[in-house]
């Protein structure tokens, strides 16, 4: 096949697949939450309420698009775009299956870390530009939260990098044949999971939104599709974190019998469901507690993990 056509198809496939997944995820999350909470959830629109995301989309688009009078207009408009763009960019390096990969980048992990840091600007700028005190507090919390958790996120991945000897995600997946990295890097996996949760600012780490405290945090003033963009950004972000966990620790597309892409989707979906379950189960720690846990426990653990991994690899090499 023509390489240009091939990459064009892959890009379109991933993009369409992702956007659909983000939509379906809305339905899955709402139905699952309802299931966990003894209620029905959306069950009217389409079979089992499946088309609720279409209804949501129509509602979102037709709502009044409003910019508060005191807002910093260009930044206010830019902020929701950033989160969607960065979350989608992150997917460029995810190897979905052999041959289905947009960008075979040899510094894949670095690229992901850079792009995800960019995504934070979205919430911070949105919170700042809204000219609303709740938004400002939400944005502040987000910047502090990210400042801490980006560090552990990077450190947690270094164990995998040492083991595989590569920053390229495809090579990392291929090097996991026989033994998934979740076994030797269990601590790294836990830390990455923790940091990923904080990164996607979902309950229990949704302090930047914290409905009962800050109304809706950084996106209090957003309406219509701008609000929708934050939503899409959040769901794509969660999917990205799940896909990365699968890629780095659970052997990516690898698995017996079923085709690779099915394995990849199944594993990713498992983590998405886990995130939903977590949201239903756990209360929200206080903002300063989250930071304290991060610096007091997770940072030393991440460093320990790195040192031990390095030592073991060195010892084996000798």
């Amino acid at each position: 096949m023509n390489p240009v056509l091939h990459s064009f198809l892959v890009i379109q496939g991933v993009l369409i697949g992702l956007m659909t997944l983000a939509g379906v995820l809305v339905w899955i999350e709402r139905r699952l939450l309802a299931f966990f909470q003894d209620r029905l959830g959306p069950n009217r629109c389409g079979p089992f309420g499946f088309l609720i995301f279409v209804a949501d989309g129509i509602k979102m688009v037709t709502k009044e698009d409003w910019i508060p009078p005191g807002a910093d207009k260009p930044v206010f408009v830019l902020a929701p775009a950033i989160i969607v763009i960065t979350a989608l960019l992150g997917f460029a390096i995810i190897p979905v299956a052999p041959g289905i990969l947009i960008l075979d980048l040899n510094i894949g992990i670095l690229f992901f870390l850079g792009v995800s840091s960019m995504g934070i600007y979205s919430t911070v700028l949105g919170g700042w530009a809204s000219n609303n005190k709740y938004s400002l507090l939400g944005g502040l919390r987000m910047s502090a939260q990210m400042f801490s958790y980006e560090v552990f996120m990077g450190l947690a991945l270094m164990g995998v990098v040492i083991l595989s000897g590569s920053l390229n995600l495809r090579e990392i997946v291929e090097s996991q044949t026989g033994l998934w990295y979740v076994v030797p890097q269990f601590l790294g996996f836990l830390i990455f999971l923790f940091a990923g949760l904080a990164e996607t600012h979902r309950l229990p780490f949704d302090m930047p939104e914290a409905e009962s405290e800050l109304v809706a945090g950084f996106h209090t003033e957003y309406s219509s599709m701008k609000f929708g963009m934050f939503f899409v950004g959040e769901y794509v972000g969660v999917t990205l974190i799940s896909a990365l966990i699968v890629t780095l620790f659970f052997g990516g597309w690898q698995g017996p019998v079923l085709p690779p892409i099915v394995w990849f989707l199944l594993k990713t979906m498992a983590f998405l469901l886990f995130f939903v379950l977590l949201r239903a189960a756990i209360p929200r720690p206080r903002f300063d507690q989250l930071l304290a846990w991060g610096w007091k426990y997770i940072l030393p653990l991440a460093l320990l993990n790195l040192v031990i991994t390095g030592a073991v690899v060195l010892a084996q090499a000798n």
Binding site: L33, D38, L203, R279, A280, I282, P283, R284
Partner: peptide, 13 residues
Amino acid sequence: YAQDVGQMSPVFY
């Protein structure tokens, strides 16, 4: 009370 500290589900039960 649980909801105020961010726990979503108990209020429904």
